[in-house]
Amino acid sequence: MQARTQLVAILGATLLLLVVLEMVRRRRLMERYALLWLLSAIVLLALGIWTGALRTISHAIGVIYPPNALFFIGIGFILLLLLHFSAAVSRLNEQSEILAQRLALLEERLRRQEQSMSSLAHGASDSRSAELAQAAIE
């Protein structure tokens, strides 16, 4: 691998690593979602530094030009990350559905409670039912 290509690979992977760590530090990224990013960055960085391993891998998968193997592995990680986040989005989707349903049920419950309370208060013509309404409010 050419020295310049290697340098670019190392710098890129290092930058990715630092950005991910900084995002976790600022709590912009949860650890749960950072782990796969970190793994990608570390593997790419390792292969950028240790060109022998990259050459072995590129031979093994039949890629003539080793930096292309780096691209290949990088794309592999991107696919993995996308799948990971699709699963995460699906879970969030399901949870927000449940939240919306719970909220709608809760609103309906509250509305019914308010209605029964106000009808109690309005219908309180004699003192006995006024007391009842007061007790209900309390």
Partner: peptide, 8 residues
């Protein structure tokens, strides 16, 4: 995950 959290 916790090691990462501690480290960060």
């Amino acid at each position: 995950k916790v090691l990462l959290a501690l480290f960060v």
